[in-house]
């Protein structure tokens, strides 16, 4: 299946940079494939915001690809266990992102201005602890569908950048731990054919 097509399904409309980050391709290769997909009618390029988006045909093609891939890999049942484990981790990760962005000062929810190294160190440590448990779940997903393995290295990369001082890479950047985690969430929903919301 086309990882570039699937990237647009999970990342949403975006520029070539995020497609490249998602797939691990370099930007030139990603762009070249995007152009091929555009010729096939699966994606369009929006000059307005300089990004790429799926067409209805592209969305349908990706859904066909993922469901065929899942059949070959043993079907939905194989993913159910690790997906449930993901759903347990998800609220904890959102709690951690929130704790990184805001904290209670005299009872008031206040933006974390990152001037308290002890607090930041504590939350960063909790992200590292979380990541160890997330890695176990992602490895279980990758045992069924190897492409999920990329999330582990991408998340680890974002965590390392935050640990080495690039504080936005936990929750405040388009390449942050939170955004990659949200892509994983979307990928699981897309792969399992689950609606995020109804109505």
């Amino acid at each position: 299946m086309s990882q570039v097509l699937h990237a647009l399904r999970c990342v949403g409309s975006s520029g070539v940079t995020r497609v490249a980050a998602f797939t691990g391709l370099d930007e030139a290769a990603a762009e070249s494939e995007l152009i091929d997909l555009a010729v096939a009618g699966f994606v369009t390029h929006h000059t307005g915001f300089g990004g790429w988006a799926l067409t209805d045909a592209g969305r349908e093609a990706d859904a066909g690809n993922t469901s065929a891939e899942l059949e070959t890999a043993g079907g939905r049942d194989a993913l159910t266990g690790p997906f449930d484990d993901f759903l347990v981790l998800n609220p904890e990760l959102l709690d951690l992102c929130t704790a990184w962005q805001v904290r209670s000062v005299d009872g008031v929810t206040t933006a974390n201005d990152h001037t308290d190294p002890a607090y930041d160190h504590r939350v960063l440590g909790l992200f590292a602890d979380f990541h160890e448990r997330a890695s176990v779940v992602i490895k279980a997903l990758a045992a069924v569908l190897p492409r999920f393995g990329r999330y582990e290295s991408r998340l680890a990369g974002a965590l390392t950048r935050a640990q080495t001082g690039e504080l936005a890479f936990l929750a405040d950047d388009l390449a942050s731990y939170h955004v990659i985690w949200a892509e994983l969430h979307e990928d699981l929903l897309a792969t399992l054919g689950i609606q995020r919301w109804r109505g």
Partner: peptide
């Protein structure tokens, strides 16, 4: 809620 995807992204 206060710790939802939308909240985290909006604050970012």
């Amino acid at each position: 809620g206060p710790a939802s995807h939308a909240a985290v992204v909006a604050r970012s």
